[in-house]
Every structure is written in structure tokens, then in C-alpha cells.
């Protein structure tokens, strides 16, 4: 009796336009200006490194991930983000390996999209940093080099020594930490400093991330709380001892903070689902960044700060369950 011509689906029969692939590919799109700036600034080496880590990430997803998973765009994001937190002169095989590790051990072993605990790109970078500490902290010089020149031995063979002596320099955070030299704020804001590919150009990253926040593709509370907490902690310290501790604006604009806050910490899968939890998550990241940068053994702490807070997300979610309509907070917790 029923007519097979008609579809019978459950309500609601309307859907919002956003889909998971739309969100993912919008993130990819919003990263394009950041990547383009890296190429403009670091030359063809930047393009090679980003492409290599994308190849590693997407290739691994295609080979071992769920069927068709490449199309959702999340592996591409991981590849680009990993590339953006690597130095321009990195041997390409390391970038490929990092991309493969990110997706393989950062995502597929957990069960694929939506299942992982840690941000895959940062996990890949942490792996590379542990495996190749020197290569990962060799920053090519930014001045007096022709644009088209490679900024390091990009084509080095796996496990062989470097054959090119590139001119290297230190990052603003390294200068601050180990040589007590402060980089001008203007250089930090507009990206004319040494660092990872996507570490430079704080303003550009802020604009690109802002576009995502306006579309509700990232939770603005996370970067906002990171910035506020970094600013608050460093302001206090700077007021206590201005000679020893840098200014809040230096801390906000230097290193990977901007990229980390806008793009890594806001990874939907590995950040809290509740808005109250997002504030806690962001404040925690900000606090850890300041802690590691000022008192830790490393110059930069964004990566570890985010990874540590990633691990706490399940607890944060549990502790910040929403208060159900028509109940009181105390009752909801019981």
C-alpha cells in the first residue's frame, strides 16, 4: 500500500548548510593565506616542506585510514598545520615522516576522525622534535638571502648528514630566553622574524582564524581565553620584574602562540565540547605556555601546553556538563 516513491526519513527534514567536510575544507582554505605568506617569506623551501607533510598525512590516510576519509579534509588540515610548524630548511623526508606519524599514530590508531585525544599535527611535531632535535630547531636566516634559494638541505637523504651550510639564526623566543634580546613588536606582528613557517605573521593568522570564528567553524572562546590568560600572567610577571620578564605583547605575538591558539587548540575533536570547558581549556593552555617559556628548558611551550591540555579534555568535559533547563546547578551535579 505504501508508495515507494516517497522518502520517509526522521525529522528534522531540514538541515543547516554546514557539514563536516565544509568545515574542514574551510579551515584548509583559511590556511592558504598563511601558507602563501610563508612561501613569500621563506621561499620555495616553505612550499616544499608544507607539501611534503601534506603528502605524508594525506597519503597515510588514503593508505590506512577509513575508505573515503581523505575527502573529509581533516588529513589535509593536519598536513598543512604540521608543515606550518616546521622550519623551512627541514629535510623533506622528515616532513613526510612527520605527516605520516601525525595521521597514523595521532589519528588512525585511535579509530579515525573524531576519536583521537591529541591534536594529530602537534603529535607529529612532538615526534619529530624528539627524533630530530637539531633539524627541528635550525632556523634559516631571514635576511640577505635570495628568495629562490633553498633555506636548508631540503633534499637531504634519510639518515644522512646535512650537505649544505645554510645561514641560520635564532627565533625571537630563543633570543629572549638565551640571549636576553627582545625582537621589536612590529616585526612579530607582521611576520618579519625567524621561526617555523607559520609562526611568523601574527596579524595574518588572526585574520584568517577570525574568518573561521565568524562562521562558527572555531570556538572563539578558546583563542580568547588563551590570549587573556597569557596576557594576564605575563602582565603580572612583567610588573614584578620588567627586566627579567618580557612584555605581554611580546609573549602574545611571538613563537607559535597565534597559530596554536587559532588553529591547533581549536581543533574541534581535541578541545572541550562545552563552552565553560573551553574557557578552562584556554586558560590552562595560556598558563602552561607562560610556565614553559619562562621556566622550562625549551624556548617555546605552545606545543606541549596544548598537548597536555588535550589530555585533560575528557575531565574538563565531565566537570562542565551544562545545567539542564529547569534544574539547579547543584541538582545537575548530583
Amino acid at each position: 500500500m505504501s508508495d515507494a516513491r516517497y522518502l520517509v526519513t526522521a525529522s528534522p527534514h531540514l538541515r543547516s548548510r554546514d557539514s563536516t567536510p565544509t568545515i574542514m575544507w574551510s579551515v584548509v582554505g583559511s590556511l592558504m593565506p598563511v601558507a602563501a605568506f610563508a612561501v613569500y617569506y621563506f621561499g620555495p623551501s616553505a612550499l616544499l616542506v608544507i607539501l611534503a607533510s601534506v603528502v605524508g598525512a594525506v597519503g597515510t590516510e588514503a593508505a590506512w585510514g577509513k575508505k573515503g576519509a581523505v575527502r573529509d579534509g581533516s588529513a589535509a588540515i593536519t598536513g598543512i598545520l604540521l608543515g606550518l610548524c616546521l622550519p623551512a630548511g627541514l629535510p623533506l623526508w622528515m616532513a613526510v615522516l612527520g605527516g605520516a606519524f601525525s595521521i597514523g599514530f595521532g589519528k588512525i590508531v585511535f579509530g579515525g576522525l573524531g576519536q583521537n585525544i591529541f591534536n594529530p599535527a602537534l603529535l607529529g611535531r612532538a615526534f619529530l622534535q624528539a627524533a630530530f632535535p637539531v633539524a627541528l630547531t635550525t632556523w634559516p636566516a631571514v635576511e640577505n638571502v635570495p628568495w629562490w634559494s633553498l633555506r636548508g638541505d631540503n633534499f637531504a637523504l634519510p639518515l644522512m648528514g646535512s650537505r649544505v651550510d645554510a645561514v641560520t639564526t635564532a627565533t625571537p623566543l630563543g633570543l629572549m630566553k638565551f640571549e636576553q634580546v627582545t625582537t621589536p613588536i612590529r616585526d612579530l606582528a607582521f611576520g618579519t622574524t625567524a621561526g617555523s613557517l607559520g609562526e611568523t605573521g601574527a596579524v595574518l593568522i588572526l585574520l584568517c582564524g577570525g574568518y573561521l570564528a565568524l562562521n562558527n567553524y572555531l570556538n572563539w572562546r578558546i583563542p580568547a581565553s588563551i590570549f587573556l590568560s597569557v596576557a594576564a600572567f605575563t602582565t603580572v610577571l612583567h610588573l614584578i620584574d620588567g627586566a627579567r620578564y618580557p612584555t605581554p605583547q611580546f609573549m602574545l605575538l611571538s613563537g607559535g602562540l597565534m597559530l596554536g591558539a587559532m588553529y591547533m587548540a581549536t581543533d574541534m575533536v581535541t578541545s572541550p565540547t562545552t563552552n565553560r570547558g573551553s574557557w578552562i581549556f584556554g586558560v590552562g593552555i595560556g598558563f602552561l605556555v607562560v610556565l614553559i617559556r619562562l621556566w622550562g628548558g625549551l624556548a617555546e611551550g605552545v606545543m606541549y601546553a596544548i598537548l597536555i591540555m588535550n589530555a585533560l579534555v575528557p575531565f574538563i568535559n565531565r566537570a562542565t556538563q551544562p545545567r539542564v533547563f529547569g534544574t539547579t546547578r547543584a541538582k545537575a551535579a548530583a
Binding site: D18, S19, T20, P21, I23, D72, S74, G112, L113, G114, Q115, N216, N219, M268, V269, S271, P272, T273, T274, N275, S278, Q321, P322, R323, V324, F325, G326
Partner: peptide, 18 residues
């Protein structure tokens, strides 16, 4: 697609469920 834990449903729910 798998849940990506974006939290949009929590922001939409009028009775504040999860």
C-alpha cells in the same frame, strides 16, 4: 560523518542537554 565534537549541538539545545 563521525562526530567531530564540535559542540554545536550543545549550543543549539534549548533545554541545555548534551
Amino acid at each position: 560523518y563521525p562526530c567531530i565534537r564540535c559542540g554545536h549541538c550543545l549550543d543549539a539545545c534549548p533545554v541545555f542537554l548534551n
